[in-house]
């Protein structure tokens, strides 16, 4: 029982790390980025190639995966995404689905379509018993890393100049520009960090999320659920939504494997219909 809870939290934490970048693009910049999962996949494959092919230590591969996804994200933002900020949602959807298809095809072409596993160091394998609760070492690591990221994110957003600039840029672009904030640069950097975190999450979660070329499409709906159910008024909303979704999904697969997906999608629809601003959004004007 508690093991399921624990696994669910680990899973939810991963979803959060991957999806928090999407919360910014979708929620704050009002950009429907269906390709967000592609960056997570790229991070995952980056770590896979480093660890399995070049024998780089697992821990060293994580920051590289972050940087790799962030750089590609930055490049994509500056060259492609930037043309779509003021376009209709339909055009954004078409563009980002197109990106997903292209990335999946490229990965499939070079690395094959089968599921890949990253060779984990021996000390991360197995479980230990903690007051009768079976704790997977690897999952514990995920929780620790993700919690660390969450704390750092909160600190950056709340206490740094960049954080206040981002909030200003999101609140009112025009005024932020007037204050001399380079909004384009703030958005680009935020986008890159969001992609980097997705890449890190992809690398960290390759084991749990099953790394294969159609990863972005398979998890697209999960990331969207995190953002739309969690709302985008804070970081806590998506975080709580991720944890709930993670626990719900793991528990669903365990107790009612046949109805898991059905229940999750239905809940998403109900939440969207009843609370279009997200489940945890504070009552905003209108």
């Amino acid at each position: 029982m508690l093991t399921i809870l624990f696994d669910g939290i680990a899973y939810g934490m991963l979803l959060f790390v991957i999806a928090c970048g999407l919360a910014v693009t979708l929620g704050l910049m009002n950009f429907v980025n269906l390709a967000h999962g592609a960056f997570a996949m790229l991070g995952g494959y980056c770590a896979y190639v480093l660890v399995n092919v070049y024998g780089v230590p697992f821990f060293a591969s994580l920051p590289v995966a972050f940087m790799f996804a962030a750089m590609i994200g930055l490049l994509a933002e500056r060259t492609l995404y930037v043309h779509f900020y003021n376009r209709s949602h339909l055009e954004q959807v078409l563009f980002t689905i197109g990106l997903v298809f292209m990335t999946s095809a490229v990965v499939d072409y070079f690395l094959g379509s089968q599921q890949r596993f990253i060779n984990l160091p021996a000390y991360l394998q197995g479980r230990f018993d903690f007051f009768g609760v079976g704790i997977g070492k690897y999952r514990l690591l995920i929780i620790l890393v993700c919690a660390l990221i969450l704390i750092v994110l909160q600190l950056i957003l709340g206490y740094t100049r960049f954080g206040s600039r981002l909030r200003a840029a999101v609140d009112d672009q025009r005024i932020a520009r007037g204050l001399g904030i380079n909004v384009n640069w703030v958005f680009a950097l935020t986008f890159a960090v969001g992609c980097g975190l997705a890449g890190l999450g992809g690398a960290l979660g390759a084991e749990i999320l099953s790394l294969e070329p159609h990863f972005p499409l398979k998890f697209m709906i999960y990331f969207l659920i995190v953002v739309s159910v969690g709302g985008t008024s804070s970081i806590t909303g998506p975080f709580l939504a991720s944890i709930l979704l993670g626990i719900g999904d793991v528990a669903g697969k365990y107790y009612a494997p046949r109805y898991g997906g059905f229940v999750i999608y239905t809940i998403m629809i109900v939440v969207l219909v009843l609370r279009p601003q997200g489940l945890f959004a504070r009552g905003t004007s209108k």
Partner: peptide, 12 residues
């Protein structure tokens, strides 16, 4: 799959 994706991006 690649060319379909490419077509989507170009059309968008």
């Amino acid at each position: 799959e690649f060319w379909i994706g490419f077509a989507l991006v170009v059309i968008a």
